[in-house]
Simulated scan of single mutants.
Amino acid sequence: MGRPEQLPGEEDIAASGEGGRKIIHIDMDAFYASVEQRDDPALKGRPVAVGGTRERGVVAAASYEARTYGVRSAMASALARRMCPDLVFVRPRFEVYREVSRQIHGIFAEFTDLIEPLSLDEAYLDVTDNHQGIVTATEVARQIRARIREETGLTASAGVSYNKFIAKLASDHNKPDGLCVVRPEQGLAFIARLAVGRFHGVGPVTATRMEKLGIHTGADLRRCSREFLAQQFGKSGDYFYLAARAIDHRPVRPDRVRKSIGSENTFFQDLFTHDELAAALLESSETVARHAARTAKAGRTVSIKLRYSDFRTLTRAKTLPAPVSDAATIQQVALALLAPLEPVEQGVRLLGVTLSNLGEGEEELVVTAEQLALAFE
């Protein structure tokens, strides 16, 4: 990737390189679907969806051939079928994916002990001091990707940078089977060019709100003061302020265990109507479902968090008879938890959904309507 140009008049806050760290984010390409295509030659080159085939099933992963039709993870299986009539559904084999993931993490461990898994198919690696004594993180990433291809027959994309935030963005830059390097002196300009919707933590609702404020790119976001962003986006404002300046001091944390999967949004304008609240819950439910699919997790407890305009905060939770992971079911439970709180007397400034009491994924991660009815009796 060519060296980006820095915006005129901007101080290169990122030039220090976050203390000289060398971070790699490895992300396997369409992991579940690629494993299925590898193991069944008849699936190669065909649009493949891994996930439930029932009416209320959900797509856990889609091959790149399926993605050209708009099929995405966390999408309802019925909708995916309509978008791509030739779509081939394959039941997930989570034990196989976990075994391949263990193989890949074994490769990581040959280069560094500082490995932070995010899911079965992605991880951060701190290779500032690596076992092989390789001078550049770029070369470490090249060798890791080559080993993965040689030993598993799968491809991985990698982002190389001086902090986790940029490394993760970079890994998505040249997918599939790509490598993107963002050096310390390039960080600000790399962020400046990105649409705000590419920032992690900026969902469709937040992106739309930012665009209404005239914030379309990282450069636009960097022109906003910390106070303005805090006023508009609550506690997320500080994250946006630092991210726009390519700053992320978080270290790579080995053996990180996820206890819950959550997503919440702070709104530019308070929400009042049921349709507005339902749309916000759907966005958060879809975000949670995507993470659940990537980690092969399901949860029995769904909770919502609601904050009114006067900052009064409520939480409600329900534990279900069986684990769930699809967006439709998570939203259904969230709406049932919200119902006793409606109509809202004051505007809602924050709303979020969390899935907890996590366990390993099952072949068909669906709670039936009858089970849900019993759960709320």
Rank of each mutant, 00 (worst) to 15 (best):
residue 3 R to S: 13
residue 7 L to Q: 06
residue 8 P to H: 12
residue 10 E to V: 14
residue 19 G to Y: 05
residue 24 I to P: 09
residue 27 D to C: 11
residue 32 Y to N: 00
residue 33 A to C: 12
residue 33 A to Q: 09
residue 36 E to H: 09
residue 39 D to L: 11
residue 40 D to H: 11
residue 47 P to D: 07
residue 49 A to R: 00
residue 53 T to Y: 01
residue 64 Y to E: 04
residue 65 E to F: 05
residue 65 E to N: 09
residue 74 A to I: 03
residue 76 A to H: 04
residue 78 A to P: 00
residue 78 A to M: 08
residue 79 L to G: 00
residue 81 R to Q: 14
residue 81 R to E: 07
residue 84 C to R: 00
residue 84 C to S: 07
residue 85 P to K: 01
residue 87 L to P: 02
residue 96 V to H: 07
residue 96 V to Q: 07
residue 97 Y to E: 02
residue 99 E to G: 06
residue 99 E to Y: 07
residue 103 Q to W: 06
residue 103 Q to A: 12
residue 110 E to P: 06
residue 115 I to Y: 00
residue 115 I to M: 03
residue 118 L to I: 10
residue 121 D to Y: 10
residue 124 Y to I: 14
residue 124 Y to E: 11
residue 130 N to L: 13
residue 135 V to D: 11
residue 139 E to K: 12
residue 139 E to G: 05
residue 140 V to A: 03
residue 149 R to Y: 10
residue 149 R to A: 15
residue 154 L to N: 04
residue 163 N to K: 06
residue 172 D to N: 14
residue 174 N to R: 14
residue 175 K to Y: 08
residue 176 P to H: 08
residue 176 P to A: 08
residue 178 G to S: 11
residue 179 L to T: 01
residue 182 V to D: 07
residue 184 P to T: 13
residue 190 F to E: 06
residue 192 A to M: 10
residue 196 V to I: 15
residue 197 G to M: 09
residue 203 G to Q: 05
residue 203 G to M: 03
residue 207 A to H: 01
residue 208 T to D: 14
residue 211 E to Q: 14
residue 211 E to R: 15
residue 213 L to Y: 02
residue 216 H to I: 03
residue 224 C to E: 08
residue 231 Q to K: 15
residue 236 S to E: 04
residue 238 D to Q: 14
residue 241 Y to A: 05
residue 243 A to Q: 11
residue 246 A to G: 01
residue 249 H to W: 07
residue 253 R to I: 13
residue 256 R to V: 10
residue 259 K to V: 04
residue 259 K to I: 03
residue 261 I to N: 05
residue 264 E to L: 02
residue 265 N to A: 15
residue 271 L to G: 06
residue 276 E to F: 09
residue 277 L to W: 11
residue 278 A to P: 06
residue 279 A to Q: 14
residue 279 A to E: 14
residue 290 R to S: 13
residue 291 H to R: 15
residue 292 A to G: 06
residue 293 A to V: 05
residue 299 G to S: 07
residue 302 V to R: 05
residue 308 Y to I: 00
residue 312 R to S: 08
residue 313 T to Y: 09
residue 316 R to M: 01
residue 325 S to D: 14
residue 329 T to G: 09
residue 331 Q to I: 01
residue 332 Q to C: 12
residue 336 A to V: 01
residue 344 V to P: 04
residue 349 R to Q: 13
residue 349 R to A: 10
residue 359 G to A: 13
residue 361 G to E: 05
residue 361 G to K: 02
residue 363 E to D: 15
residue 365 L to T: 04
residue 367 V to G: 13
